[in-house]
Simulated scan of single mutants.
Amino acid sequence: MSAEVDQLIRVRGMRARDVPAVLAIEQVSYGYPWSERIFRDCLRVGYRGWVATDLNEAVVGYGLLSVAVGEAHVLNLCVAPDWRGRGIAALVLEAMITQAVAERAETVLLEVRPSNRSARRLYKRRGFKRIATRPGYYPAADGREDALLLALELDI
Rank of each mutant, 00 (worst) to 15 (best):
E111T: 13
V74Q: 02
W83P: 01
V74D: 00
S115E: 08
I88K: 00
G87D: 06
A105F: 11
T107R: 14
Q99I: 00
R113T: 07
G87I: 11
N76T: 14
A72H: 07
A68W: 11
V79H: 07
S115C: 10
A68M: 09
V108A: 02
D82Q: 14
V101N: 08
G87C: 09
A80M: 03
N76R: 13
A102E: 14
P114M: 03
P81T: 14
E111A: 04
L91H: 08
I97K: 14
A89L: 01
V112Q: 02
V79N: 06
A100R: 06
D82T: 08
V74N: 00
L110P: 04
L110F: 09
A72P: 02
V79Q: 03
V79C: 07
P114A: 02
H73A: 11
C78W: 00
A68S: 12
A95E: 14
L93A: 11
Q99V: 00
L77I: 15
E94V: 03
G70M: 05
L110A: 08
L91V: 01
E103C: 02
A89Y: 06
E71P: 04
I97R: 15
S115Q: 11
I97C: 12
A90H: 13
L77Q: 03
D82H: 14
V108E: 09
V108L: 02
R86P: 00
T107S: 08
A72W: 10
W83N: 01
T107D: 09
V112W: 12
L93E: 15
R113P: 00
W83I: 00
R84E: 08
R86S: 02
T98G: 07
N76A: 10
L110W: 07
C78H: 00
N76D: 15
L77S: 06
C78A: 15
G85V: 05
E106Y: 15
L91M: 15
A95G: 12
V92M: 05
A95S: 15
